[in-house]
């Protein structure tokens, strides 16, 4: 019943970093910006590790990007993933192209499950998992979550949120949708994308970090995959949205009411 799981790991700007647009509008200012593993991908790695701990198998992480993406792959290895693949690519990427590359990796690795983040927090596209599922003609469950909260006992015990069927060939996934939560049962192989409430990712331990240095990290050039690398979504220009100006502080509820009623006419 062991599961082979492929997890995607993108290098993105740290959500705590201040993002500014370069004066020429051709990119963002990268000086002083920290990078890390996309938070949703961290959740995907955690979920993969929990499934492996429960059922056995292998967790392979893959990243497409610049050489430095090794750092994020090592971070995933330090959490406990078994090996990593870096597809070296320096230049603009979009989910249509990323998913075409991932399709090639999937065809070579033949995982039972691909776990991905629902969204990269740089481009905020929320597409790559769905594109990949369609390219493979696999079933998908996006925005995977779970019924129990992140404060629950199940979470303390590090239970997987996605549940493997007794036959080992199906997966039950609870997903966040508009107006409630939906449960889907997927026949494996499948693609699952993670939402925020699926789990709380573990921190890498010191021994984990030491071990990660020796785990296999295979590198290949994007061009070697034989897919069209031309971006399908071309960013013409970046700008900063108009800043919202702060207003006034009010002394008490009475004044707040007055302002809302008479000045803003919002009440």
């Amino acid at each position: 019943m062991a599961l082979k799981i492929l997890v995607t790991a993108k290098r993105v700007e740290d959500p705590e970093s201040k993002i500014r647009v370069r004066p020429d509008g051709a990119g963002i200012v990268t000086e002083g910006v920290n990078y890390k593993l996309n938070p949703f991908d961290e959740i995907a790695v955690e979920e993969a590790l929990r499934l492996k701990e429960r059922h056995g198998g292998e967790v392979v992480v893959v990243s497409i990007g610049v050489d430095k993406s090794q750092t994020e792959l090592r971070a995933a290895l330090a959490m406990g993933a078994d090996r990593a693949i870096l597809v070296r690519h320096d230049g603009p990427l979009d989910p249509a192209v990323v998913s075409a590359m991932l399709q090639k990796i999937v065809e070579a690795e033949k995982p039972d499950l691909v776990l991905m983040g629902k969204q990269s927090i740089d481009d905020d596209q929320n597409q790559a998992g769905q594109y990949l599922a369609e390219r493979l003609r696999w079933p998908q469950a996006t925005f995977a979550s779970k019924e129990a909260s992140l404060e629950s006992e199940a979470e303390q015990k590090k239970d997987p949120g996605v549940v493997l069927g007794a036959d080992g060939r199906s997966l039950t996934v609870v997903r966040e949708v508009d107006g409630g939560v939906e449960t889907l049962v997927l026949a494996l192989p499948a693609v699952v994308t993670t939402d925020l409430r699926l789990n709380k990712p573990r921190f890498a331990s010191l021994p984990g970090i030491m071990k990660a240095k020796k785990k296999p990290l295979q590198e290949l050039a994007a061009a070697a995959l034989g897919v069209d690398l031309a971006p399908k979504v071309v960013v013409k220009r970046l700008s900063e949205p108009p800043a919202r100006k702060g207003g006034v502080k009010v002394a008490d509820v009475e004044e707040l009411w007055k302002k809302l009623h008479e000045e803003a006419k919002a009440l």
Partner: peptide
């Protein structure tokens, strides 16, 4: 980037 940037 969480609405920090507008892209055309």
């Amino acid at each position: 980037w969480a609405g920090n940037v507008l892209a055309e």
